[in-house]
Design a protein around this nucleic acid. Structure first.
Lengths: 148, 148
DNA sequence: CTTGGTGCAAACGTTTTGCAGTATC
DNA sequence: GATACTGCAAAACGTTTGCACCAAG
């Protein structure tokens, strides 16, 4: 069994156990999400249309919302105001960090858990209970550096 | 001379040296920005209207854009997709980090430069030239913790 | 009188919602 | 046949833009 299949199965179970169905539309959307990272809703919609041209944009949004409610999906909004989506826990042990290239716009992910230390400091110093964090670096990526 | 006055003066000089004017509208917007942190455009607009009811929302946006071009203002977009604005370098030695309370929505700032270490790691490991970073913690703030 | 600046309203791009119709158990 | 679920179109939201008018050197 392929890794993708087992993920689909897990998500299907999550859906059904919450009283929802795995419709053909949701299947295609999940497929696109499994094959890609940090796509925007529009980008997901376009890729979905290639496989099933009758799917509406509203369905994409509703499915993304649903998956987010089920904690299957992560929604992120970067500085451009456009939200991007990723399936949760795609093999990450820790919350990934992001590298946004200011030249080409590419978004890379990085794993690094040095933040745990900082989190502890924050909790002690400010009495703020940390549930989650997000760290983004802006700069210039490797390939853009090499081109200049 | 009040601190606020000297800041206004600096910004005015920046404006004029770039060929722009300090109009009454821009003055009021700057006043609001000086007295508040991380407001949205709409919030700035409402506060501006209290002092000068004829200012338009478009002017607020245009002024914010202008100030950003002049590197006087910082624009940030959090997960809700709404941009928030802050005057730069309001006494911060280092880039501040944010504490977003998931209960009351309050945004607090925190200073901490432990990230420099992580930045160095990123640059070495991924050959990514870091220009800037943003770190946000989501959780529950002190007053919300005490209320429960 | 030329230039930058303004208010207003219309347009924009992303996201949400209302609704009538469809699919599934 | 009740209950999700869907596509479509319209609306909503924050933001930007076009335009005619205004203000200041």
């Amino acid at each position: 069994m392929k890794r993708t299949d087992s993920k689909i199965k897990t998500i299907t179970q999550t859906l059904y156990s919450a009283g929802f169905k795995l419709t053909p539309q949701r299947q295609v959307i999940l497929k696109v999400l499994l094959e890609n990272e940090h796509l925007s809703a529009e980008e997901i919609y376009l890729k979905v249309k290639i496989e099933n041209s009758s799917v509406g944009l509203a369905t994409v949004y509703r499915t993304l919302d649903l998956l987010r409610d089920l904690n299957v999906l992560n929604k992120m909004t970067f500085q451009d105001g456009i939200s991007r989506y990723d399936l949760n826990n795609s093999g990450h042990l820790h919350q990934p960090h992001y590298l946004l290239c200011q030249k080409c716009g590419k978004i890379d992910e990085v794993e690094n858990d040095l933040l745990l230390e900082i989190e502890k400091t924050i909790e002690e110093l400010y009495h703020f209970k940390v549930n989650d964090h997000r760290l983004t670096f802006q700069g210039v990526c490797r390939s853009c550096l090499e081109q200049s």
